[in-house]
Simulated assay, not measured.
Amino acid sequence: MDQTKCTLYSSGLKGAEETFGEAAEKRNINEVIYSFEGHKLSRDKNTVILSQEELERGDISMELASRMMSRTYYETEKIRKVLQTIFHMVNSGHQVFVIGSIQEDGSVKGGTGWAVELAKMFNRPLHVFDQPTKQWYIWKNSWVPDTPKIEYDTFVGSGTRYLSDAGRNAIEQLFIDSFGS
């Protein structure tokens, strides 16, 4: 695969998304960062600021998001915009890579979990690096151990702001396995 024809989609936040962006930039992979007015980013290269109308295209019921992720989201404007932004990331990228923590119920902890749930709904190839077990998993109606590669020219890199050394190494190894060093 020609890495210069690939595009990484993220929201440019500190931690996993910043690290995905740095790994992509090192390899001349295109990067698109979705955000909204007033959102603080750690990476701001090729940023697309979503308009209110564009954000609303990714609108979801906070009740539905809460139910799907087995947690409570309060009706706050910022969390709604974050979830709407994640919709645009997952809608743009074909393959989804997430760094986080897989919970006992199979969901992924935090807002990152919304990218996982959307990838499942959109039937995207979905890979999660579970920081506690230091292992990649692929979604096959349950989590199955995996050693993923980037195999599509559009992909999403998302995940926790609290990136461990194992998570950072997993991102770097993913890019090495996919494109070489």
Rank of each mutant, 00 (worst) to 15 (best):
D2Q: 14
Y9M: 11
S11W: 08
G15Y: 02
E18P: 08
T19K: 12
F20K: 06
A23C: 15
A23E: 15
A24L: 08
L41M: 10
S42I: 01
D44Q: 15
D44C: 15
K45L: 14
K45D: 03
E54V: 07
G58F: 05
S61R: 01
M62W: 03
E63L: 10
E63P: 02
E63N: 06
M68A: 06
S70L: 01
S70E: 04
R71E: 05
T76E: 08
K81Y: 11
L83G: 06
Q84C: 11
H88G: 04
M89H: 03
M89W: 00
V90G: 00
Q95D: 15
F97P: 04
V98T: 06
S101T: 11
I102Q: 13
I102Y: 08
G106N: 10
S107P: 00
G110V: 01
G111W: 00
T112S: 08
G113L: 06
W114C: 06
L118D: 02
R124S: 01
P125T: 12
V128P: 00
Q131F: 05
P132I: 07
Q135V: 06
W136E: 09
Y137N: 11
Y137T: 09
W143I: 07
V144H: 15
V144A: 12
P145K: 13
T147V: 14
P148T: 07
E151H: 08
D153P: 15
F155H: 13
V156Y: 00
G157L: 00
S158L: 05
S164W: 06
D165E: 15
G167A: 11
G167T: 14
N169Y: 10
I171H: 03
D177I: 02
